Each structure stands twice: as structure tokens, then as C-alpha cells.
Amino acid sequence: MMPIFFRNLPSSEPFTFDSVGNDRIQEAVNRPRGYPFYHYLQTETGEGIVKVQEKEYLLKENEGILIAPSIRHSYQSLHVSPDWKTCFATFTGSLESSIGDITGNQPVLLISSEQGIPISTIIKKVVTQYQNPPLDPLSLSSSCYQLLLLLAGGTAVQAATDPLYQQYLVPVLHEMETNYDSPLTIQELSRMVYVTPQYLSRLFRRFLGCSAYEYLTSYRIAKARELLLSSPRSEVQEIARQTGFTDPSHFIAVFRKITGVTPLEFRKLN
């Protein structure tokens, strides 16, 4: 039986595993709405095809891929016979919203086989901890942070050094991440860098694999998670306003779509 473990209690640690497993004969998976947490998948043996939105990636032995929350994806073995074995981990914690900052705020990261070897070692260690309780939350949190730092050194699918990325997306991303609490439109953002909204949208799709609206919404929800935990006395309506949502009902609906729970449920769980 392949080891797969899920977190069954709320965690107060800054980073920890929501789920982890290894030595898994990987079945086909299709997630049209993505996964609610950062999700890492790595090949142990065999080969698999991972499709993220409209792009496909081949994962050979020890190669891995990190996918941000709520990004549409699917994967399956490259071959007809089920000979693709994988290990995986998903991440949460009280500082979950900062995982994007650690990993460069990229929706997808590819991990080379050289980087994958130490990552699989950490996953194996964590699985062993789950197999031999009681669990040590601090040790799990430390292992989780080590793994995230290894992922941060991965090769981004998007070439952040590309001149187009630097000239057009960097200032727009800075504007979004600085003024996420203000009304922002693709028209205003495109005027800021002297391009059409259509061209800016194409650049977002090319480098980040999502629309400008999807990026801004994900960033706002990440900030909302942070505020829900750091300001426990703030009302949901106030959190909505502070993160750029004028309608609290819309905020709750978007929050639930991305995280799987309402803002109040998220606060109680954490």
C-alpha cells in the first residue's frame, strides 16, 4: 500500500504539509478548478505528462513540478501501462500566503532531476515521520520550509529575465501587489506600460499562465488569508474592503471558490 498522509488537525506552524506521500503508482488526475493549496508532484520512476492550462510538461525520473493554488491542471502516465510512480506534497500553514513570495509568485515551477533528488529525500523523511507517530509539529514545519527553499531554487517555467517580462509585467505586478486594495482594471494597468489591454493579457498568459484578473484575484485572496489570521477581530466586510473587494458577498464567493471554505471557516480552521 502506497503511503499517503493528510493533515487532520489545524496547524499553528508557519509552514506544514497538508498532504504528503511517496512510492505511489500515479493514476490519471483531472482538476479543472485546480487544487486549493500549492501542490508539488515529482516522478520517482517512469514518465508522466502534466498539463497545466494549455501547456504540457514531461516529467522524467526525479523531475518535478510545483503548481500554485486554483490553477487548472491534469496529469497521467506517458505510457498505457501504469508504470509511473510519484511522490508529492501539498503545503499550508499560518504563513501559507507567503509561499508565493518564497517561490517567486510563479503559477508553475519546473524542478530538475538534480534538484528533485534532495526534495524526494525530504518527502521520504516526512512520510517516515507520519508512519511512526507521535508527530513532531516543529520538525514537520522545519522539513516543509526546507522543501520550499529547495523549490525556490527551481527553474521557473516563465523566463523572468525576458526583456518583455521586465519591461511590461514587472511594473504591472508591482502595481498590483502594492495597490491590491484599490480598484484596478486591465485598461488602467495597460496604459501604465503603454500597451493595449489585449497585448498585456497575452503577456500574462505567456509568462504567468493566467490572466491579469486571475493573478490579481489570487493575490487579493492570499492577502485576505493573511489578514484573517493576523487581525482576528476584523469583520469579514472589513477584510473584503482592505483587499479590494467592494461587495462582501462577492468576496465570500471568490474566497470559497479558491480555498474551498468561507472566510469564517478558514479563520476557525486556522
Rank of each mutant, 00 (worst) to 15 (best):
I239A: 04
P134I: 03
S139P: 00
A156Q: 09
T259K: 08
L58D: 09
L150T: 00
Y194C: 11
R220N: 04
T43I: 02
P32R: 11
T155M: 07
I4G: 04
T103R: 03
P36H: 10
D181C: 04
R241M: 08
S139V: 12
E175C: 10
T90V: 04
S218W: 03
I186L: 13
Y35W: 10
S77N: 15
I252Y: 05
L138N: 14
Y215L: 02
Y35E: 08
S182L: 09
S230T: 15
G153V: 06
V195S: 07
H174A: 14
L164R: 10
Y57N: 09
P3E: 01
S211C: 00
Y35I: 08
D83K: 13
P197S: 06
G209E: 03
V157P: 00
P3V: 03
V127I: 06
E61V: 11
P171R: 07
R33V: 09
I99W: 00
E44V: 13
L189A: 05
P134M: 04
S11M: 05
L148R: 02
V29T: 11
P36W: 07
P163I: 09
G116S: 10
S234A: 15
Q237R: 12
E175W: 02
A240F: 08
P32A: 11
F37Y: 15
Q237M: 07
I239N: 04
A68H: 10
S98V: 06
K60P: 02
V236P: 05
L109Y: 00
N22I: 03
S97A: 13
S139F: 09
L41R: 05
K268C: 06
T196M: 04
Y213G: 02
L200K: 05
L164T: 10
P14F: 06
F5N: 01
T161L: 07
I186N: 11
I99Q: 03
L184D: 02
G64M: 06
Y213M: 02
I252S: 13
T43Y: 05
H250Y: 12
